[in-house]
């Protein structure tokens, strides 16, 4: 029973904190672009608002997949919370969570029947390249620490210092993944502005609320994971500071960079992943 309460509390925290941080992200981007921007609570209010809006299902939608995929997305990131902040489980499961997230992006786009969603679906296949930095970072962490268990990685850093100092290029690689996941990112080809909101375009009302709920949790889990596996045992206040700092950096980058062409985006991510992987291997073994 305690585990269930722990999971519930962590999911609520992930949703609330993730929403606030995404709201802060929008605010930072707005301030960099010399706009007042919305209040930081706006993202959360939008998420909650959609739960009470009328839901409509397009005639072209492929049911029940169109609805089911939204639930799958929420379940996927709740599993992310359980494996990460709750149980400090295996990084491989989180890699699996991210891989399923890509499948959800793909299928949410294709199931709606919208041309925007379908284009986003095609790009989701291309953007699977974002998993390369994640997989490479996980492999490098394993080479360095000898474990994929988050709890043991935290203990390793408690004894040997933060991994961000010993394998900084792996941390950079993981940061690229976070940058890719951030809203209005130069690498966010599945949600490019020419696709409206990409695979989310045809999800309305309650379903959109669910999508935003999942994205808040996703952003929190990604930031938590980055801070935990590269900066070691941190207190709550340092998690807050770290998440705000990362959001500032990604907000600044996204506000000042244009969206890359899909091919350029994928090649950039693969090039950075390759360079960082080889660089980190050299740092570990030489």
């Amino acid at each position: 029973m305690n585990l269930m309460i722990d999971i519930l509390v962590n999911v609520i925290i992930a949703f609330l904190a993730g929403s606030l941080i995404l709201g802060l992200h929008r605010k930072i981007m707005a301030r960099v672009q010399l706009r007042p921007g919305p209040p930081i609570v706006q993202y959360l209010l939008h998420s909650l608002k959609f739960f009470f809006k009328e839901s409509a299902i397009p005639r072209t939608a492929s049911m029940p997949f169109y609805v089911g995929i939204v639930v799958i997305l929420a379940v996927v990131w709740i599993i992310g919370v359980i494996v990460g902040p709750v149980s400090h489980g295996s990084l491989l499961i989180l890699f699996g969570v991210y891989a399923i997230y890509k499948i959800v992006e793909h299928n949410a786009g294709s199931s709606s029947g919208s041309p925007y969603g379908k284009m986003s679906c095609v790009r989701a296949v291309l953007s699977a390249a974002t998993e390369l930095p994640l997989f490479a970072a996980i492999a490098l962490i394993y080479f360095k620490t000898g474990t994929m268990n988050i709890g043991e990685i935290i203990a390793y850093q408690g004894a040997h210092g933060p991994l961000a100092l010993s394998i900084p290029l792996a941390a950079l690689m993981f940061f690229i993944l976070i940058l890719t996941k951030s809203p209005y990112s130069p690498f966010a080809i599945t949600k490019a502005k020419e696709l409206i909101t990409g695979f989310e375009t045809e999800h309305f009302g309650f379903l959109r609320g669910f999508l935003m709920f999942s994205e808040s949790i996703a952003w929190y889990v990604m930031l938590w994971l980055f801070l935990t596996i590269f900066f070691g045992p941190l207190s709550a206040i340092w998690y807050v500071v770290g998440m705000i700092v990362i959001t500032f950096i990604t907000g600044f980058v996204n506000a000042t960079t244009p969206l890359l062409n899909p091919n350029h985006s994928v090649m950039t991510q693969i090039t950075i992943a390759g360079a960082c992987f080889v660089g980190t291997l050299l740092m570990i073994f030489i």
């Binding site: 722990d6 925290i13 609330l16």
Partner: peptide
């Protein structure tokens, strides 16, 4: 963790 949730809720 419940205390952190209370803090977040109070702030929000």
């Amino acid at each position: 963790m419940i205390d952190y949730m209370i803090y977040l809720l109070a702030f929000i």
